[in-house]
Simulated scan of single mutants.
Amino acid sequence: MIGDESVVTATTREGIAVIHLRGAVDADRGPGLVEALAEAAAGGSSRTVVDLSDTSFVDSHTLHALLDAQKLHRAAGRSLVLAGPLQVGVRRLFEVTGTGSAFRMTDSLESAMTC
Results as ranks from 00 to 15, higher is better:
Val58Ala: 09
Thr55Met: 14
Glu35Lys: 01
Thr114Ser: 13
Leu109His: 07
Ala65Asp: 08
Glu95Tyr: 01
Val18His: 15
Gly98Met: 08
Val34Leu: 12
Arg22Asn: 09
Pro85Leu: 05
His73Gln: 09
Arg92Trp: 07
Met113Cys: 13
Cys115Leu: 14
Ala41Tyr: 13
Met105Gln: 12
Gly30Thr: 08
Ser108Gln: 06
Leu109Cys: 07
Leu37Cys: 10
Leu82Met: 03
Thr11His: 03
Gly32Pro: 09
Thr48Phe: 00
Gly43Glu: 10
Asp28Gln: 02
Ser56His: 04
Arg22Glu: 12
Ser101Leu: 13
Gly77Trp: 01
Asp4Gly: 04
Thr9Ala: 11
Gly100Ile: 01
Lys71His: 14
Gln70Asn: 10
Ile16Phe: 04
Pro31Asp: 14
Val50Met: 00
Gly15Asp: 03
Gly84Ser: 03
Thr62Arg: 03
Glu5His: 01
Phe57His: 08
Pro85Asn: 10
Ser60Cys: 15
Arg29Thr: 13
Asp4Leu: 10
Gly3Thr: 04
Asp28Lys: 03
His20Arg: 15
Ser45Gln: 12
Thr62Ala: 11
Ala24Gln: 02
Glu39Phe: 04
Val49Ser: 04
Arg29Lys: 05
Ser56Val: 06
Gly15Lys: 10
Ser45Arg: 07
Arg22Pro: 15
Ser79Asp: 13
Met1Asn: 09
Gly30Asp: 09
Ala10Trp: 13
Pro31His: 14
Val50Glu: 01
Ala102Asn: 11
Thr9His: 15
Ser60Met: 07
Val50Arg: 02
Arg91Gly: 15
Arg91His: 08
His64Phe: 08
His20Asp: 11
His73Cys: 03
Ser101Phe: 11
Glu110Asn: 12
Gly32Ser: 02
Ala17Phe: 05
Val88Ser: 15
Leu52Trp: 01
Met105His: 00
Leu93Gln: 02
Asp107Ile: 04
Val81Gln: 04
Gly23His: 01
Arg92Gly: 14
